[in-house]
């Protein structure tokens, strides 16, 4: 995603960042518009709570705005802001501890055409199984919340957001081997939590 997606945008991130660094608030607004959906997905899938996600996003962009002058462009802007987002979300989760309330987001209607959703909702003999979207959504969220924070982060970045191992290793400041190892153990855990959907 990311690199390719940002390159196809009409104005490059680097140009917007430079303008924002020189005091152009409209340029920063454009960066907020561009990255809000992606960061929202990141934070929401780590917290499973809509209100927390909205509050954290405000804090993440506020911090990014304050720190923008010190962004030297050594990494891409999306790596930089993702790193801020991941760190702030992990700090928030540590403070929140185990006391949280899951609130589900709206599910895009496009899910009904997703081959995996069709596969899940269709049994071997071709009849529809009694699995509705909300139940599946709830089960997936519960399974994600059973993972440790580190494992949940790599699953969110790799499986849901589609980032590469190398990009994740830069964001989390760990080796690619660590990313692969965390993914392996996370998938194994998810397999046991969701085994009735997998079989």
């Amino acid at each position: 995603m990311s690199e390719i997606a940002t390159q196809t945008d009409p104005v490059k991130d680097s140009e917007l960042v430079e303008r924002a660094q020189n005091g152009d608030t409209k340029a920063f607004d454009e960066l907020v518009r561009r990255y809000t959906p992606r960061l929202y997905a990141l934070v929401y899938n780590m917290t499973s709570n809509r209100e927390d996600t909205a509050d954290l996003l405000q804090d993440i962009f506020a911090k990014a705005y304050r720190s923008l002058k010190r962004f030297m462009g050594k990494s891409s802007f999306y790596t930089w802001i993702y790193a801020i987002g991941v760190n702030m979300t992990l700090n928030f989760l540590k403070k929140r501890g185990r006391y949280y309330k899951v609130s589900l987001d709206d599910v895009d209607t496009g899910i009904e055409n997703d081959p995996e959703f069709i596969k899940v909702t269709t049994s071997n003999n071709g009849t529809l199984r009694d699995v509705n979207i909300n139940e599946l959504q709830k089960r997936l969220n519960e399974a994600m919340m059973k993972l440790s924070e580190d494992h949940r982060t790599v699953v969110t970045l790799y499986d849901i957001q589609g980032l590469q191992h190398s990009e994740i290793s830069k964001i989390l400041n760990v080796s690619e081997g660590t990313v692969r190892s965390r993914l392996f153990y996370a998938h194994r855990q998810l397999q046991s939590y969701l085994e009735d959907f997998v079989k």
Binding site: N45, D108, D114, Q137
Partner: peptide, 9 residues
């Protein structure tokens, strides 16, 4: 299966 969470928006 996990990728289905992309549809939550």
């Amino acid at each position: 299966l996990i990728r289905l969470k992309r549809h939550e928006k």
